[in-house]
Amino acid sequence: MKKDLNGKLTRGTQRTLDAFLGAMTSLLAEKPLIGISVNELCERAGYPRATFYNYFEDRDDLVVYCWTALAGPVSAAELASVESKLRVDAALDAMADAMEAHTDLLRAMLEHNPPEGPLFSSLHTVIRDEARELMRTCVEQDRCDLPAELVADQYANTLMLVLDWAYLRGHTLTREQLHTYAHTLLGGVE
C-alpha cells in the first residue's frame, strides 16, 4: 500500500480509503474477484484511476487493505498482558470477533468466490500474518527448545486453520469449540 496507515490519517485520506473499501466489498458481494477491474472500482468509488494508484499498487493491494480494515486493530501489547495459558484463546477470540462482525459480507463473497480461490487466499495470508505477529510477541522463549518464531508460525497456521474451518468452510462452532479445536491441534506445542 502506498499510504502509511500507521500515522494519523486526514479526513480526505480516510474518506478515499472508505470509498475504495466500500466499492471493493460491494463488488465482491456481487461477483468474483477476477471479474473486478480497476476501472469498475473507481467508478463505484467515485474517484479517478489516478487517485486509485496514489493509494494502491493494484487491485490485490486494495484487497489486502480491505481485509486489514475489516479486521480492525488487534493489539499485540494487549495480548502480551493476558495470562500465558489464555493467550491462544484471546488471539483466536479477537480474530473470530472480526470475522463474526462481517458474517453477512463473508457469506455474500463466498457465493461468488470459492474458499480456495485468490480472494480467500489473500484473507488467509492476512490472518496468518496477523496471528504470527501476535503470537511472536507472546511465545515464551524458555517454554520449549524450538525457536520462538517457528512456534509462532505453528500457532498462526493452527489459528488460521480453525478460523477457516469455522467461518469459510461453514462449520458452525461455538467459542468453546473453537478453543478446543485450537488447543487439540496445538497439543504438541503448548
Rank of each mutant, 00 (worst) to 15 (best):
V82K: 04
S84G: 02
G187W: 00
R175S: 14
E100L: 11
R107S: 02
R132V: 09
A166I: 01
V88F: 07
I34Y: 14
T180A: 05
S81P: 02
L123Q: 07
E40C: 03
D89P: 08
Y55Q: 11
V126R: 04
Y167T: 07
G188Q: 01
G46F: 14
L134M: 12
R87C: 13
M160E: 11
G72S: 10
E140N: 10
D97W: 08
M160N: 13
A182I: 08
A45K: 02
Y65M: 05
V139L: 00
Q14M: 14
N157D: 13
T13A: 07
P32L: 15
Q154W: 03
H124F: 11
R59I: 06
S75L: 08
Y53I: 15
Y53A: 15
K31E: 12
C144T: 02
E78C: 00
L106I: 11
A94K: 02
G72D: 00
T16M: 14
P115H: 08
T13L: 13
P73N: 12
V74L: 10
T137R: 01
L185C: 03
A131Q: 11
V189H: 00
D58Q: 09
R175W: 03
D93E: 00
T25Q: 09
L17K: 01
S84C: 02
D89Q: 15
R132H: 09
A45I: 12
A29I: 10
S122M: 13
A156T: 13
D18K: 15
T184E: 08
P73R: 13
L105W: 03
C138V: 06
I127Q: 07
R143S: 10
A108R: 12
E176N: 10
V126Q: 04
W67A: 13
T10V: 01
L33D: 11
E40Q: 14
V63Y: 02
D153R: 05
A69C: 08
K31W: 04
V38H: 04
E116K: 09
N54W: 06
P32Y: 12
L27D: 05
S84A: 04
G46C: 07
Y65L: 12
T51K: 10
M24P: 13
A77M: 05
V38F: 00
K85R: 11
R143I: 07
T137P: 01
G72P: 10
I127W: 10
H183F: 08
S122V: 03
G7L: 03
L163F: 11
M135C: 09
I34S: 15
P147C: 03
C138E: 00
E57M: 09
T10M: 04
N157A: 10
E57D: 09
L173N: 04
L28N: 10
I127P: 14
